[in-house]
Design a binder for these strands. Sequence first.
DNA 1: AGTAATCCCTGGCAGC
DNA 2: TGCTGCCAGGGATTAC
Length: 274
Amino acid sequence: MRLLKQVKNTTPGRFRNALEGKRIAATGRRGKFLIFHLEDKSALVVHLGMSGQVTYWDHAKDNDKSFAVDPVTGLQRSRSQHAPDKHTHALWHLDKGDRIQYRDPRQFGKLFYFEPGEMEGFKPLARLGMEPLDAAFRWPAFHKAMAPKRGMLKPLLLSQHPVAGLGNIYVDEALWLSRLHPRRRAESLDPNHWKALFRAIPKVLKQGLKHRGTTLMDFRNADGTHGGNQELLKAYGRAEEPCLRCRKSLKRIVVSQRATVYCPSCQRPPARLK
DNA sequence: AGTAATCCCTGGCAGC
DNA sequence: TGCTGCCAGGGATTAC
């Protein structure tokens, strides 16, 4: 296991020693950070980056020999549980021989260890915006956070600041659903536009969660048919395919260095961008 | 302040 | 079969 590069705020040795023998008291998530709260109030924090996977390995179960390739993203996923391989960077050995495994082919992921009280001062966590699946994600708070913002919608939504947890896929999906152009500027939106976005964000996330769960369960067929994957994503990965609202061809552009798919007909750009 | 470029990595794939 | 170039679910940092 190579545990060097992904540990960001301490040395691998300190990281290992700090975790040794500690019980996991609770698990949580904030934005794209996974948080393992340990019994002494210290914490292990994981960011999966683009290709990271945290999986549970049960000593009583067989390993899967191969990985399934996600038809949309091209990323390898284990169908059930896998043996550590050259991309497995950390193993946490639990009681009775089970393990938590961290695997990350592209190595954009990050691991952090925080002493009690330290995590609160961790900027990337502290400055995250509102949680779109929380009960506190309500229209007045959303509008208040968004209305003063300036700049293009796509980078604004990717920034994690007004709203946490959205990545490239779900930003494109939310913008498609709310009929907003990814390059449209925040200051040009009226409350109705913001309202559409406010409704779209939790919707695409919930659909993703629901869908991903079922896909993983269906994934025991080698390279077989997959559940509702194709129907779920309306924009991402569908460049040159017909818009599911208006049948016109979806278009791929690059916005803040990220691949972006949108419908030129439904998601009209502001006049300035034409 | 906003935004664009750059960098951190590896692997799959198309095209030659 | 093997090479090259391009692409990829993120985000911090640096440069303008």
